[in-house]
Computed example of a mutant assay.
Amino acid sequence: MEITYSETREIDEKQIVALYLANKWTAADKPKQLRKALLNSHALVSAWEGEKLVGIGNAISDGYLVVYYPHLLVHPDYQKRGIGRNIIAKLKKNYEHFHMHMLTADGKSVGFYEKSGFMVAGDTRAMWIYQGDEH
């Protein structure tokens, strides 16, 4: 079946949680907050196989200069098919003239993001107060 992409904000909480659990992301432990966070993002792109949510990515932005991409997930059964690359490309298109595009990549995903045009930001280090444990 073909993968389709959407900017819909009508995504069932159960489908979102299932995708996050499949990727072992602890945000799934807060399903109501997770759904609200995604739906209130500046931009949201989802990938679907029929009625099944197979990928999602979002952007948070000031709307003028800076955009941050906090989440990009593809269901493990659908990885290595270009879905994540298509989601990030669609998100980036919304912000192509912005001064700064930012994200935090763990060691496993650095190469993926480099292929999408991102680079390690000099000597900067990501810093956070974080309640999850998957990183």
Rank of each mutant, 00 (worst) to 15 (best):
M1F: 09
Y5S: 14
S6C: 10
S6Q: 14
S6W: 09
T8E: 10
E10W: 05
E10M: 11
E10D: 15
I11V: 15
E13H: 03
E13I: 13
K14P: 04
A18P: 03
L19A: 08
Y20I: 01
L21N: 06
L21P: 00
K24A: 08
D29Q: 11
K30M: 12
Q33H: 05
L34S: 04
K36R: 14
L38I: 10
N40K: 14
A43P: 01
A43D: 11
A43G: 02
L44Q: 02
V45I: 15
S46M: 12
S46C: 13
A47I: 06
W48N: 03
W48R: 06
W48G: 02
G50C: 13
E51C: 10
E51W: 07
V54P: 01
I56H: 07
I56R: 05
G57H: 04
N58V: 06
N58D: 12
N58W: 04
I60M: 11
G63D: 04
L65F: 06
L65N: 01
V66I: 07
Y68A: 01
P70I: 05
L72D: 02
V74I: 10
V74E: 04
V74T: 13
Q79M: 10
Q79K: 10
Q79F: 04
K80L: 03
G82D: 09
G84I: 05
R85K: 15
N86H: 11
I87H: 03
I88Q: 03
I88N: 01
I88R: 00
K90W: 05
K90G: 12
L91H: 07
K92T: 13
Y95A: 02
Y95E: 02
F98T: 11
H99F: 11
H101Q: 12
H101T: 08
L103M: 02
L103W: 00
T104G: 11
A105N: 04
G107Q: 12
V110T: 00
F112A: 00
Y113F: 15
V120Q: 06
G122N: 08
G122H: 07
G122V: 10
D123E: 14
T124D: 07
R125N: 13
W128Q: 09
Y130A: 13
Q131V: 09
G132C: 13
G132V: 11
